[in-house]
Simulated assay, not measured.
Amino acid sequence: MGAEKITLRLTPRGKPLPKLPAELPISSDASVDALYDAVAKLTGFSRHRLRITKSDSSHLKPSPTVTLEDSHLYDESSVFIKDLGLQIDWQTVFLIEYLGPLIIHPLFILFRNQIYGFTPPFLQWAGPPSSTPATTTQLTLCAMVILHYIKRELETLFIHRFSAATMPLSSLVRNTAYYWTMGGLYLGYFIYAPSTTEAAPLTFYAGILIWIFAELSNFKTHMTLRNLRRPGSTDRGIPTGYGFNLVTCPNYMFEVLGWFAFAMITGWKIPALVFWGSGLFIQTKWAGQKERRYRKEFGDKYKKKRTVIIPFVL
């Protein structure tokens, strides 16, 4: 049966959309992407700012291959248009997130005397004011942080392919706060405090070797994930190979291993352990979500994993 001209009923959901007409004539074999483009042109908003749902409240996900007929939209079908508000692309979000600790940690070294020259009463336990230079351990920890986040920034620019183009601008502070406060100010203040002593040689060098292994392995798994997705597409494949035979998300596994090595070099300082533990908690949650998504999306083609982030444990 050939394509036919249909009319969709358009209804705003949430705040009013003054430019949105009540009807939209469109071909039944038009893609969902074409529908988003048409509504974006009518409203004057970016297509990434819009969310289109059907009358059963199911999300009509953008797709260049799925047609309106495939989506069970016919003549006189109703769709609901929601304005998601101002958006920011995910690449920019990641760049801003990682910029925080990349700037903050070196500042603790560069302005060490000014920062630790005055210690408020409630932080007296962190040590007396210092005029001594940073220790070799502290300089090494700072270098590890800088290299880690430079790697993250470069991966964001040249490696990662994002399944979602944008997120609401209003969520930017929430998304960046963790890296700027927990990973930047909180971790940095106590790691570079005068009370931090030199790590024992065995702990120091073992920690560095584990960290290097974790960083390189994390990069390798990011390359595997990149190669699953064609440029400009949002399609997904089943990841296999290095690390993926052990857990759902080896990229997260190696990430938490790297911060474990970092905490090890600090002498198991509480702030380093708190940052490691919070990262483990968050990424375990994300890895569990990915495991469930893989099972749902790929069915019997996907080999289910018992552990998502730490082999045989979690």
Rank of each mutant, 00 (worst) to 15 (best):
Q91G: 14
G243E: 01
L273Q: 12
T248V: 15
P25W: 06
R230A: 15
I208H: 02
Q289I: 11
K303W: 00
F219Q: 03
M182P: 02
L246S: 05
I270Y: 11
L273Y: 08
E4Q: 13
E255S: 04
T65A: 12
C249F: 00
T92M: 08
R226S: 05
T196P: 00
A30D: 15
I310E: 02
P231T: 11
L84A: 10
V274S: 09
A30Y: 08
P231W: 08
Q91W: 07
T135W: 09
I191M: 11
L172R: 05
G85R: 05
T224A: 05
T137K: 04
H222P: 04
G184Q: 01
L110S: 02
K15E: 12
E255W: 02
Q91N: 14
F262Y: 05
I104G: 00
P133F: 08
G267E: 06
S57W: 13
D300Q: 07
T176L: 10
A272L: 07
L169C: 00
A261M: 02
R47Y: 08
T221C: 15
T92D: 10
F298T: 00
N175H: 06
I104L: 02
S78C: 05
T119R: 13
S195R: 13
R230F: 13
N227I: 05
E155K: 11
T65V: 14
G299T: 06
L157W: 13
N251W: 03
L86G: 04
F158R: 14
L257M: 15
G241I: 07
G267A: 04
N227D: 15
D83M: 06
K303F: 03
S46Y: 01
G258Q: 01
R49S: 07
F111V: 01
A199P: 05
L84E: 15
R112E: 04
E297A: 12
L246K: 03
N175K: 05
K41S: 15
D83Q: 02
K54Y: 01
G14L: 07
F244H: 10
I150P: 11
Q138P: 06
P201Y: 03
W125N: 07
V32L: 15
Q138T: 03
P271W: 13
I238W: 12
R306I: 03
Q114G: 08
C249I: 02
L154P: 09
I309T: 07
H59W: 13
Q138K: 11
W276S: 04
V274P: 09
T53R: 14
M253D: 07
S58F: 09
S131Q: 11
S171Q: 15
A3H: 11
A199K: 01
L20D: 07
E297F: 06
T234W: 12
I309Q: 03
F244P: 06
Y205K: 00
K82S: 15
R47V: 05
A287Y: 11
W276P: 03
G188C: 01
T197G: 05
P25R: 04
K82Q: 15
N218T: 08
T65W: 10
K305C: 00
I96A: 04
A287C: 13
E291A: 09
P120E: 04
L20S: 05
T140C: 13
L246M: 14
A164W: 04
I109L: 11
S28D: 11
K41M: 09
K303H: 06
L187T: 00
K151L: 04
R112I: 05
G288D: 10
P128F: 09
E69I: 04
T240I: 11
N227T: 05
V66G: 02
